[in-house]
Nucleic acid binder design. Structure first.
Lengths: 205, 205
DNA sequence: GTCTATAGAAGGATAGAC
DNA sequence: GTCTATCCTTCTATAGAC
């Protein structure tokens, strides 16, 4: 019974996740989710009361997953270069398995900016710069990274990883026309991105 | 009369543009658009028959504007470095005036991949590499750009320009918490991005 | 060309039986 | 806990008067 409940609830949650990611909050239909889960519409309301609550449950989990991928960077005992390589490998691999998450998250953040606080609050952002400064004091001398350009640097890193997936439909379409393969392009990006960034940051001697 | 018609039609079109960009196709309501234009709902249908047609009209114009910004690059008689600087200055300035376009476009492309063909077809993509190769044959010898890495290079350029706007809600929220100003960050990016890329591409001698 | 009124369909939510 | 049936609101779209 309780075993069965869990199964139904999870089935609903998983179906909702898929449908919401594909169609977004506004485009998703409760009927779609019910069909997808192989159950009745009324059951959705039994477990989650409203569409809004169901969506929130889904969104918080997903957004959490996405941002967690940024965290280990600060705990690993690696050099700056190794951290960059580690990040792109892990983050891009995660998105290969969940290619539609980036656009979904960016989109729903835009639709409902209130959601951002919840997620951002959980991350100790100030730790970011502190750790960078403390753990890599010596290394930073060789790179063009300063307190002033941290936002530029961080968004460049994030963008090089996320943008190809957020813009996948366009990029894949253009590449197809030019004879490139999107999946291979993504695979290569795990190396290209950190190489590119490290090159850009190195101070010319 | 004909003068007035034009005005009404344009007013509808502009209102629709604003509402669609803000809420997306699924989230937008014909009533919102009518209210925004200060007219009656029925008039929308008189001019555009259906919500779908109205949306398509809006989308095609907007997507066109966005991609046009990439075109002049190939006609200008500039060095590769100058083209990069030119692109980031123009493209980012355009998005400063239309900060919500990028996410809107990426999103609707994802929802309706069929739209992509229409836009992509208009661009002579093969010309891209041909021009690059022809106009900058000598310069390319000094850069890490090959036929194989063109996709990596192009998407990196596009991403450095577009991503900050697509992810604006998150980025702005994080920056606020850290004491940075988003608008200033964007302004600085017009210089930072081309500097960064040129540095990354230069072959170490 | 512009309005009011309304048809008609769709979707979220609930009542009630099992 | 799960289903069927149904309510009620919302939204697109049209009919018809001015």
């Amino acid at each position: 019974m309780t075993e069965n409940d869990k199964l139904t609830e999870e089935k609903i949650f998983e179906s909702a996740t898929e449908v919401f990611i594909e169609k977004g909050m506004d485009g998703a239909r409760m009927q779609d989710i019910a069909d997808h889960a192989g159950i009745n519409k009324a059951l959705l309301h039994y477990y989650y009361r409203t569409k809004d609550r169901l969506f929130n449950a889904v969104f918080e989990k997903i957004a959490g997953q996405m941002f967690k991928k940024f965290a280990p960077i600060f705990d690993e005992n690696l050099s700056l270069e190794e951290k960059l390589r580690f990040f792109f490998r892990e983050h891009i691999t995660f998105m290969q398995k969940n290619p539609k998450l980036p656009l979904f998250i960016l989109n729903e953040f835009h639709r409902n900016p209130g959601r951002i606080r919840k997620v951002v609050q959980k991350i100790d952002i100030n730790k970011l710069w502190t750790v960078l400064e403390a753990q890599h004091k010596e290394e930073l001398k060789n790179y063009n990274i300063t307190r002033e350009t941290i936002p530029q640097f961080m968004t460049t890193v994030a963008g090089m990883s996320v943008f190809p997936f957020a813009a996948r439909p366009v990029i894949a379409s253009i590449m197809e026309k030019m004879g490139y393969d999107f999946d291979q392009y993504i695979e290569e990006r795990k190396e290209y991105a950190p190489d590119f960034i490290i090159n850009a940051l190195k101070k010319q001697v």
